[in-house]
Amino acid sequence: MAISVDSKQNLKVKTLIKCMQCDYTQERDFQVGDFVLKLVGNCPKDNGPLYIAGIYAEAVTSKK
C-alpha cells in the first residue's frame, strides 16, 4: 500500500503569479481566496494582466 512516512515535514504554501504578456513572475504566501488562473491585477512592468500560475507547497528547511 502506497503510504509514505514523510508526513512530519513542515510545508509552506506559496502562490506563484505570472504576467500574461512578459516574463514577470512573483512568489508570495498563499492567501485564502487564491485559485489557479485567478486574475490578480496588473503587471508593474508593462501593465499586462497578472494571473495565478500555480499554488504549491514547499518544504520549509529550518536554518539552525
Binding site: M1, A2, I3, S4, V13, K14, L16, G54, Y56
Partner: peptide, 15 residues
C-alpha cells in the same frame, strides 16, 4: 506521487 501527496497540498515537484 504518494497517497498523502495526492490528497494534500500540491507539492512543488508536482507543480
Amino acid at each position: 506521487m504518494s497517497m498523502e501527496e495526492a490528497i494534500t497540498e500540491m507539492r512543488k515537484e508536482v507543480y
